[in-house]
Simulated assay, not measured.
Amino acid sequence: MKSKKSIIESATTTLKLESEAILNLLQYINDDFVEIVSAILACKGRVIVTGIGKSAIIAQKIVATFNSTGTPAIFMHAADAVHGDLGMIQRDDIVMCLSKSGNTPEIKLLAPLLKQSGNLLIGMLGSTDSDLAKQADFILNTSVEKEACPHNLAPTTSTTAQLAMGDALAVCLLEAREFNTNDFARFHPGGSLGKRLYLKTGDLAVKNEKPSISPDASVKDVIIEISKNRLGAVVVIANEKIMGIITDGDIRRMLENYTNIEDIKASDLMSTNPKRIDKDELALLALEIIKKNNITQLLVTKNEEYFGIIHLHDLLQEGII
């Protein structure tokens, strides 16, 4: 078992090597990179991303990132390509091939076949003298000085460089397409990420009770109305207009400050300028307002009229927090 010091040193060295490799990629963001972005933007088909070994795993991640940010993409394993999967490539597709050496047997066999089909071939590679480099129309250079593996064998730094270059390409395409949060939400409807991008405050408020009371209501009536729901608050309404809000915290403070509460009315307890949000605003914005004002309930309105209440627990339950 290695010592604590040696473990920390090993991890630190790995991260330094990989971070330096990423920074080294800056010199390869050149005219080829710009032309690749332009070609993909103009592509009427899809980007077919292929590779072998660890590069194939990175290729799958790049495909996932492309698809989720507006660039249609498909993964094709290089080994399967020569056993029938070449049929997935259509005339208008662009092919991107990932390989550190550019000389593995599968890649050497695949590259000429791709050229014969007439598809644009992009090589993301670590050797500009390789067979793949000679066949490629454009090169994304992801050369690294050494792997983080102490034997300089296991793909570590090289795959990190491929991953970073893929992200750089995806982000450039995303921005060029003016891909926005609404687009992102369409492609990510599931899970907490999607909810942060599309869930509206009105979607939450309609699930709750809509507690309300008149300004001249007694303390007893206020407490009963608050207790009937799990929101810990009631909205004071007069002539269908919002006059204020009373929370369970207001009730506790009243009991601390008054011994005789018989003559106290709802209008005496309410906060007259409650924080509010329109029902069509994102729930994520509601969370920001709640955090900023250190509150747990937020009034939801529609055309300035009372629509409902959302509670901090609603946001927590939906995974917005």
Rank of each mutant, 00 (worst) to 15 (best):
K2I: 14
K2C: 04
S3C: 10
I7L: 15
A11T: 14
K16H: 12
L17E: 13
L17H: 08
N24T: 00
N24I: 08
N24L: 03
Q27G: 08
I29Y: 06
D31M: 03
E35A: 03
S38D: 15
C43W: 05
R46F: 03
V47N: 02
I48A: 07
V49D: 01
G51Y: 07
S55Y: 10
I58W: 09
A59Y: 07
Q60W: 01
I62H: 06
V63Q: 00
V63T: 13
T65P: 11
T65W: 07
T65G: 07
F66Q: 05
G70D: 10
T71F: 03
P72F: 06
P72L: 07
P72R: 00
P72M: 06
A78P: 01
A79F: 10
H83Y: 12
D85E: 14
V95P: 00
M96Q: 06
C97Q: 00
L113F: 13
K115I: 05
L120T: 14
L125H: 02
S127C: 14
L132M: 03
L140P: 00
E145H: 09
E145P: 00
C149Y: 10
C149W: 07
H151S: 11
H151M: 15
L153A: 08
A154E: 04
P155K: 07
A161I: 09
L163N: 09
M165G: 08
V171I: 15
C172N: 12
A176E: 11
N180W: 06
H188Q: 02
P189V: 10
L193Q: 06
G194P: 07
G194F: 04
R196Y: 07
D203F: 11
K210W: 05
K210S: 14
I213G: 05
S214E: 13
K220W: 06
I224V: 15
S227K: 08
V235F: 07
A238Y: 12
K241H: 14
M243A: 09
M243T: 08
I245N: 05
I246N: 02
T247G: 02
D250A: 10
I251S: 05
R253N: 11
L255V: 13
E262F: 13
I264W: 06
A266I: 04
D268T: 09
D268M: 09
S271W: 01
S271R: 09
N273R: 14
R276P: 00
E281Y: 13
K291W: 02
L298C: 05
T301C: 08
E305L: 11
G308P: 12
G308Y: 03
H311F: 11
L312M: 15
G319Q: 11
